[in-house]
Design a protein around this nucleic acid. Structure first.
Length: 576
RNA sequence: GCACCCGUAGCUCAGCUGGAUAGAGCGCUGCCCUCCGAAGGCAGAGGCCAGGGGUUCGAAUCCCUUCGGGUGCGCCA
């Protein structure tokens, strides 16, 4: 249990008592009753809106309810005061002893402080990265990789059973292009002059693949028709690319549980099975789509296609699953893939896509709703672009020239921890500027540094204390935590569990990063306050009991920072 | 033309799923080291939350609408 959950339960209990005593009507819906930190700390430690949300259904004046509730709550030993404010807020102040209890809790729970059973072991599948297996990962993929991984860790931390999954697009035309490009490199390895036409991948990273192919098959494919080698080289090359991609992900500390092959859906009856499910629900038909309004393609002509009635599930129009030539559209294997996830028994699905896939969201949600009979929710997070910069200069990417900034370039420039943290300092749907110079600065301007520095400062004091034989204390020493600034810091620590839960529910790991920044800021402020008020210094050489108490407090700060960074996949620094 | 995302301080962005006087960093102005690390901190100036309607005790947040920016729109994946 946590402080906010405890008090919330206390408030509900008090309200129920009031019902039993006839001071409130029975059977009130209390789900809207919340206990939150007030926006302005001057209002108190916690505030409840109970009186306001219950006033109308109870047919009573909100202040009347608030006064009665306040009377009950002040009997609680942890609550120092309860004041009615504004239209009916009830502002609560907790006793210093109650806050000190939070420190004891944090030290006792340590690495699991903030863990929650919110997910109740629900099985949740997070699909991310899923980049085409045609080359190394670039900056854009990096953001998706970091976000997906942090989200997975966050869900794990909140009691979900998480599967991290990568969908390999190895079934489409782009892997044929890959195979042809590798063939050219293979010819090159045999000393031939080759030209990279449009529609091939000219990147240097395929040189060694061509060489490896030569090492493996010798001259077997020289002068041969594409029909002879295409399929074999495709498999060879995609395997190589997947090794590359796994290595890229590993440099960031990202590890997948499942790599799921698109190709495995073809010729195995799995696409057919998924569509048969939809057909059985009357959601597949043959028909002709209207041309898109406003922007009709030049070569538009009406054609009959096999369509999915996605419009019955909130999509704008029905979507084709089969092209007019009888082959599948990309949507068909995607339906089959999500059908497979549903059949595997997941309770919830999350897809992380690039923002350019925005037009795909509604049909995918429609498909999952239809296939699972609305049982399995699908959340799709769209990742906005990353603008990579060095100072004022933007590092441009050009796919045609084969020059792009890779994930590995970024990690080599700034390290995995900085890459991860900075990528998480923005909401997923906001564009991100990533300045490779700025993120390496050791200053307040750099949020990674700022948070790491707070952790390192705690460790530094604790080390110094250890030299003097002072260790963080237990419950008996916590009276040393008494200044309002100290209690405010502890209150911030008490927010951690509810912050974690709200971030997990919203699927928004960036909230963790922002919280850590605020916590670090509060800590640095308290540290500096010790300059003017020696009583606030953590190390009090002439008063060991006080030192032990304050050490317990700052150790709690380090624990929360460490737990938070753990969710972001960042190593806390002990020294800087 | 339609759909989705976005619009908050000069700049870059938060805003806890509807709460009280809208916050932080940078930049600007002025302060704080005989002191556990100044790689920090404190204070000040700076806002019609793009505009307009609505919903209710209460809106930056939810709904409608206008304007502005981004992305996407059958036989690409």
């Amino acid at each position: 249990m946590t402080m906010f959950a405890d008090i919330h339960a206390t408030v509900l209990a008090a309200l129920n008592e009031m019902c039993a005593e006839g001071r409130l009507p029975a059977g009130l819906d209390m789900r809207a009753v919340a206990v939150e930190p007030p926006r302005d700390a001057a209002h108190g430690d916690m505030a409840t809106n109970a009186a306001m949300v219950l006033a109308k259904p109870a047919g009573m004046n909100p202040r009347e309810i608030a006064v009665a509730l306040a009377e009950k709550l002040t009997k609680d030993a942890r609550i120092a005061s309860a004041e009615v404010a504004g239209p009916g807020f009830l502002n609560l102040r907790l006793t210093a002893a109650a806050w000190r209890g939070v420190v004891a809790t944090i030290l006792a729970q340590s690495a699991s402080y903030g863990r929650s059973a919110l997910g109740q072991g629900r099985r949740i599948n997070v699909e991310y990265v899923s980049a085409n297996p045609t080359g190394p990962l670039h900056v854009g993929h990096t953001r998706g990789a970091v976000f997906g991984d942090a989200l997975a860790r966050l869900l794990d931390f909140t009691g979900h059973d998480v599967t991290r999954e990568y969908y390999i697009n190895d079934g489409g035309a782009q892997v044929d292009v890959l195979a042809r490009s590798v063939y050219l490199r293979y010819l090159e390895a045999h000393g031939q002059e080759v030209a990279f036409a449009d529609g091939t991948y000219p990147g240097d990273y395929l040189i060694e693949v061509g060489q490896a192919l030569k090492d493996e098959v010798g001259d077997a494919y020289l002068g041969q028709d594409e029909a002879v080698w295409l399929s074999a080289i495709r498999d060879f090359a995609t395997d190589r690319m997947l090794v590359l991609i796994r290595e890229d992900l590993a440099t960031l500390g990202v590890e997948m549980d499942v790599f799921y092959s698109e190709k495995s859906l073809y010729g195995t009856g799995r696409i057919e099975a998924a569509l048969a499910d939809l057909r059985g629900k009357g959601l597949i038909y043959e028909g002709v789509l209207e041309p898109p309004k406003g922007k009709t393609p030049e070569d538009w002509e009406p054609r009959e296609q096999t369509l999915f009635k996605s419009s019955e599930f909130g999509d704008d129009v029905d979507r084709p699953v089969m092209k007019s030539d009888g082959s599948w559209t990309y949507f068909a294997p995607d339906i089959a893939y999500h059908y497979d996830k549903i059949t595997r028994g997941f309770d919830e699905l999350i897809d992380i896509f690039g923002a350019d896939h925005g037009g795909y969201v509604k049909r995918m949600k429609a498909a999952v709703a239809a296939l699972s009979n609305n049982r399995v929710p699908l959340d799709i997070k769209l990742m906005q672009l990353v603008r990579l910069k060095r100072g004022d200069q933007e590092l441009k990417m050009s796919k045609r020239a084969g020059t792009f900034v890779t994930l590995r370039d970024v990690v080599e420039m700034v390290g995995p921890d900085v890459t991860r943290f900075v990528m998480l300092t923005r909401k997923n749907d906001a564009p991100l500027d990533f300045d490779v110079d700025k993120v390496r600065e050791q200053s307040k301007d750099n949020p990674v540094f700022y948070v790491q520095y707070a952790h390192a400062r705690v460790q530094s004091v604790l080390r110094k204390g250890a030299e003097l034989g002072i260790m963080p204390g237990g419950a008996d020493d916590l009276a040393a935590i008494s200044d309002p600034a100290e209690l405010a810091l502890v209150a911030k620590l008490a927010h951690w569990p509810r912050l974690v839960e709200s971030a997990a529910e919203a699927h928004e790991p960036h909230r963790i990063a922002f919280y850590l920044y605020e916590l670090a800021s509060d800590f640095h402020a308290l540290w500096n306050k010790g300059n003017g008020e020696p009583a606030l210094r953590f190390l009090q050489e002439d008063d060991l009991a006080t030192s032990r108490g304050k050490f317990a407090m700052i150790r709690a700060v380090a624990i929360v920072i460490s737990n938070g960074l753990g969710i972001l996949g960042v190593q806390p620094a002990d020294k800087m």
